[in-house]
Design a protein around this nucleic acid. Sequence first.
RNA 1: GGGCGAAUAGCUCAGCCGGUUCAGAGCGCCUGCCUUACACGCAGGAUGUCGGGGGUUCGAAUCCCUCUUCGCCCA
Length: 899
Amino acid sequence: MTEPLAPQYNPVAIESPLYAWWRERGLFAPDAHPAGSGIPYVVMMPPPNVTAVLHMGHGLNNTVQDVLVRFERMRGRRTLWLPGTDHAGIATQNVVERLLAREGRTRFDLGRDAFVERVWEYVRTTGAAILEQLEAIGCSADWSRTYFTLDEGLSRAVREAFVRLYDEGLIYRGFYIINWCPRCLTALSNEEAEKHETEGRLWHLRYPLADGRGSVTVATTRPETMLGDTAVAVHPDDERYRDLVGRELLLPVVNRRIPIVADEAVDPAFGSGAVKVTPAHDPADFEIGRRHGLPSIDVMTPEARISLAAPERFQGLDRFEARARVVAEFETLGLLDKVEPHRHAVGHCYRCDTVIEPRLSEQWFVRMAPLAAPALAAYRDGTLHFIPERRGDDYTQWLEGIRDWCISRQLWWGHRIPVWYCEAESCMQVSVSRTDLESCPACGGPVRQDEDVLDTWFSSWLVPFSSLGWPDRTADLATFYPGSTLVSAPEILFFWVARMIMAGLHFMGDVPYTDIYLHGTVRDTQHRKMSKSLGNGIDPLEVVQRYGADALRYSLVSGMSVGTDVILDPNDLEASFAPGRNFANKLWNAGRFILSNLAPGGRAAALRPLAGGPDAVRPGDLTLADRWILARCDATVREATEAYEKFRLNEAAAAVYRFLWSDLADWYIEQIKPRLYGDVPGGDAARAVAVQTFDVALRLLHPIMPFITEALWKRFPGRPADASISVAPWPRPDPRAEDGAALAEFGLVQQVVGAIRGIRAEYGVQPGQTVRAFVSQDGGQPAPALERERGTILRLARLSELVLAESTERIGGHAVLPDGMAVFVPLGEAIDVARECGRLGAEAERLASLVTAQQKKLGNEQFVSRAPADVVAREREKLATWSEQRDVLVRKRERLGCV
RNA sequence: GGGCGAAUAGCUCAGCCGGUUCAGAGCGCCUGCCUUACACGCAGGAUGUCGGGGGUUCGAAUCCCUCUUCGCCCA
């Protein structure tokens, strides 16, 4: 049943069959766990765009989720990780439009219905590839519940939400300044307009008074908008302009008379204190215009070219051409006062990076303040937890300053707005409906549906319940709402995370999750975000191919402490991922070794150390090393479990790594070899302890490295064919394993071996050559542990003889252990006495200075009286230890004949 | 303009609810080893004024102030 294992772990051969087996067995379903009666643990996967290709950001995000999900699943929770894809309105439409462009066509050539059908076709053929890619990295999501945000069910939820909000007066339509992308030709929400700090300019334009007596200078970063100016505003208290308020200016270039108005919103300290007012192209100006009844002149087309509302010579010019032309004309007229460099934030379309144009337009909005209040309260009353905590401030700040959400998009791909307009002039009724309307409910006349679709995020914010069947009251909804943890990149805190909380509270009366884990960003070594355009990305699938999914996951997890970015070098995959691969290989070989040394009958594998009962290893059969590794294992269970619970995944990884490599492989496995080989008795106990501690470590590591842990775990004798580590019980701390004495005593053995190895290396003793060693303690016997572990020390330090007494010889290598124990390796003429004197002298000096400093510290009355007693006691102990070490070294030097 | 975070070994980072890890890990580097699980390995080794300055304290990488640099969020 156990075929011989290759000496080198080959993840590619092992991972996909294992994954297929997990799926077949249905292990990712909430009820897969034998003890699956636990309380539900639910994680909503941030749905990737349906057209997306897996990148490291997805890799990180989904690895974190999978680690948490696998951890809780093993702990017995009914675990649901719910996956899906997002139709991603703008992004997907852009992709298909680019495809059409290659054929020399536009979406308008196809018409709406044909275009939408074309997108569906595209989505169906390429669609959901990213979910398969997530399988390659081991994600244990419940694929049987996979949703798409344009599915019928979720579409119904979208309509339900829209109608309810409309009926509650929380959705309205109106003319406002919105963020307009002249390339995508659609409105965007505030969040979708990314602000980039830009080195721009501030142009100071002079507007003459209409009567020719004087002028006012205004400063602007967008001179072309002056074509649409309908006023100049000053602060009402600004002495400089008091007399000018109410008078008229002659707008240059356009030659339009515009008034000077006084408005509180003007900042007298900015520029000249007078601002141009362009109500159609700036949100602040729009408000000023409203307060003063100013006309709005839209001087731009949807493509951001100058419209017919401007003088003819500007019409059709691109906005930036127009900018240059306006500036030139002002210069010619002698009205360009000055141009200054000016750093400011410019909005860019988050999908195509085109500069956003603030534009007056009729759109649909969600009134957010009423939704924000409960969301804010849920954080303040402690219902919501952010990890890291400080992210709660971002959340609070955003909610406090929340603005209404523009939800209509002038796109074709998405949920069409469920609003119908009656075309009968006598009626003109606006109807909002859950079902498609054929005629006007009021007059029976013909109706026409709103042309626009909804913001993609209007479907995503419902996902925590729409994916479970809402608005129907399904069993899933009852069981899995509210969920538990949301794992996300901080970039989508506002787009998605906060809005889900608002929607959850509004429609379900409860938050969709209580823990919000916001991880960092994957960056390159120059700390630049990985991106396609920079070409600094790493393809996770390439990493899986070359290093294995476990190595990828291990690297991501171990490189990520809570909330910090993960830095990976795209030019050196080896540096980033080899450690994970090497760790997997180490594990593989440790497992291979233990397996190959099990007794043929498998009896030892069934023995349980510390368990009690007939199949237990009797406590008396446990050696110091056994007790030591059991204690270390127990400590690791505590450490790792606590780390997972606190989302400190890197600490969990480090704890298990340390245990497996530094304790189990480096020491324990080396220590038990004679017992395994039958050279000394106690083989069964050693095998039992090795199997048990290795089993525990595999389980602790499984959330992070699911494949190799499963591959090895399955191979241990006594496992039913269908047993999977992914639903094996999570290890519990065992008080019987705690053993401070064993930790200390075996630690001493390690120190002795280390000291001898150090001396050997120092003097170039060949590894094959054995030496003698003396270990002695002034005024006493060396610890009994050394006698008991004599064999261990002989083997691991490669000794021909170990004498637990002082030597009469004097030429050799010397070392002193922290507790003053002296180690001596006689090397006769092989060593250079002067060199050894120098070595010991330096060490003695170092200790002497420590002792001096410590004496000074303890001589300080202030310290002794003010510091807590236990601290003082500890410091005295240190002094004693160091003094002893120093004294031993000094005596050694005398014996050696050092001067 | 407001808020926040980070600056510790060549690199990536731990440690940061003041005194056993006055400095750790992995990688890289140096030395020696194909020791019958693993050379994706084993054994040893070197490297840091814990960003600058000031302060609190008996005592600070760890708390406070300030400066510098980098990054993030919001206006």
